[in-house]
Design a protein around this nucleic acid. Structure first.
Lengths: 230, 230
DNA sequence: GTAATAGTGTCTCTGAGACAATATGAT
DNA sequence: ATCATATTGTCTCAGAGACACTATTAC
């Protein structure tokens, strides 16, 4: 049995694609309890705290449904667990942290805000605890997985176009990606039954309208057998 | 602060390549404490149990150095964390589990044993707690990562030959891999400064001797930009 | 020599990178 | 028609899959 007080939290890095600013955003929550009350931090809950969860997954769902998050998630995956004696001033604590993606931009509560993922990951925006390094680890996972999967498409929701796919891949990978490469991958996804052409079109910023496809397997990730070289 | 008793353990899936039997082996430990005393299970320690650890990583090192493991690790990585109310009969518990690889076959203590990874992962050998599913998750990580990295070479130690590399890749991926593909990858690794030809040779089972290469970056993983298709 | 395995050469095929050429809408 | 962007086509190149061919050891 534990020697002393011990906290285990579940923390979510909820990301979305902000079309207006053309960048990825991270959901932060203004803490109302000590420590760091009033500071912006990752939404999290204590697993073995005031509520009894049946499993870690239940704790994640409790957090997702709470006012700290309150959004539908298009994707969620566990990234890692950190634990040490110093990260929380209260006591020895561990955090199991997740990458989550929301497809739609949505209204947030007063205590919530979208912040630049890049700025948080590189430390320009400082967060309490070791949340900056957790965000950096999640960003790293997102990037490495996006080299050889369709994960970035999770940001685009049910119906999207090839140019939008190109934009989100370039954004996530933080480098230009050729539209021809993306088209080939979308074709591959269509053959694999993950996408279907809708026949509909949507208007971009002037120019020719964009044909759209729809996601037939929301929440399922496809792995390509080649990564974007670089 | 915690409502009730809560355990957080660190568990290792230590793997090695048994050349004699041509298969991957998993290190198990005969438990001497309840629950499941006398049963074979994954080596693990309670974080902040009888001993105070400064971090999860410290707990891993404490376990590695203990008589439950007591081996040098060529590789170690965290794979995931599970936690629920049922996995341990004592109380709510979490386990953060790791994939570890030892390069050399070594003598074990009385209370230790090497078991077929395959048999444990598919449930032919049953382990207490949810250790079977933990082992399956670790095997899955090993396999998926081996599709596009040099991770399997960690099993081979400092100096090895192309045929040995072919064997270990085929074993890890559980399918035949062409020697030409492996040779090309070894060439790539040599160009990247990860390997060097030793000029030495070693005798296989009859036939022409095998030229050996040495690992210049032990413990560093290289990622190829293509996976083995299939 | 033969047997057995190591190592090389060559061909096909897929998909990324690059970029030119054409198509389709708004104005 | 013009502009802006979407979409298609073509070429190169790297690397996996496949397999034939040559090389080097033991006997």
């Amino acid at each position: 049995m534990p020697l002393s007080a011990y906290l285990h939290t579940v923390d979510l890095c909820v990301l979305c694609y902000c079309r207006a600013e053309g960048e990825l955003k991270l959901l932060l929550n203004k803490r109302d309890a000590e420590p760091f009350a009033g500071h912006w931090a990752l939404p999290g809950v204590v697993v073995n705290g005031g509520v009894q969860d049946l499993s870690l997954q239940d704790a994640v769902e409790r957090l997702r449904a709470s006012s700290k998050v309150g959004l539908a998630l298009a994707w969620s995956e566990q990234v890692g667990t950190v634990g040490d004696a110093f990260r929380d001033p209260r006591c020895w604590s561990s955090s199991t942290y997740y990458l989550a993606i929301v497809a739609d931009e949505v209204a947030l509560g007063e205590h919530q805000g979208w912040f630049s993922l890049k700025a948080v990951a590189d430390g320009s925006i400082k967060l309490p605890f070791d949340h900056n390094s957790i965000v950096a680890a999640v960003q790293e996972r997102l990037l490495s997985k996006s080299l050889y999967s369709n994960l970035p498409l999770m940001f685009l929701g049910h119906e999207f176009s090839a140019p939008e796919a190109t934009t989100i891949f370039s954004l996530v990978l933080a480098r230009p990606v050729l539209k021809t490469s993306i088209r080939q991958r979308l074709l591959k996804l269509t053959e694999a039954g993950y996408l279907r052409e809708t026949g509909r079109k949507k208007q971009g910023e002037g120019g020719r309208p964009q044909a759209t496809v729809e996601n037939l397997r929301p929440g399922e990730v496809y792995f390509f057998d080649r990564s974007f070289a670089d």
